[in-house]
């Protein structure tokens, strides 16, 4: 063994540089991760607030009452959007893994699920936000 120390490049040089310019496949995966984490945090809060009913129904009502405002309503729409994307893209990934033509059609399938997402979300968001809109602008 030679005694001359050939120092290894430090770990920081392993990463860095510009953002990798991945295409639809990569960004759909990024969105899948983000929507997955968002849904997890919702479920976390949801399990806690629902479990509260076992502690005391009154405090449960108090907590639920704090949700009844336009801001939380917007978050609910976001939640529906996140869950819907995650579910549709999940189906796409199943097709990629199990359908022999899936990998070749992955990009088309992504645009298909995005189209379905828009078709569901536009009227969905409208009806979900209708009540808040009426409350904020005073028709109710």
């Amino acid at each position: 063994m030679s005694t001359t120390a050939t120092s290894r490049a430090p770990a920081k040089t392993k990463f860095g540089g510009t953002l990798y310019r991945g295409r639809e496949g990569m960004w759909s995966w990024v969105a899948h991760r983000i929507t997955g984490v968002l849904t997890f945090f919702f479920l976390f809060a949801h399990v806690l607030d629902t479990a509260l009913v076992r502690v005391s129904p009154e405090s449960y009502d108090t907590v639920i009452a704090t949700y009844k405002n336009p801001f939380v309503n917007l978050m609910e729409i976001g939640l529906v959007g996140a869950v819907l994307y995650h579910a549709l893209n999940g189906l796409r990934i199943i097709a990629v893994d199990f359908w022999s033509r899936g990998p070749r059609l992955q990009r088309q399938m992504l645009w298909l699920i995005v189209a379905v997402w828009v078709v569901v979300m536009v009227p969905g968001a409208f009806f979900m936000f209708k009540h808040s809109f009426e409350v904020v602008f005073g028709s109710k």
Partner: peptide
């Protein structure tokens, strides 16, 4: 594998 298709590209 998370099927990001970066490898295929």
């Amino acid at each position: 594998c998370r099927t990001t298709f970066n490898c295929t590209e």
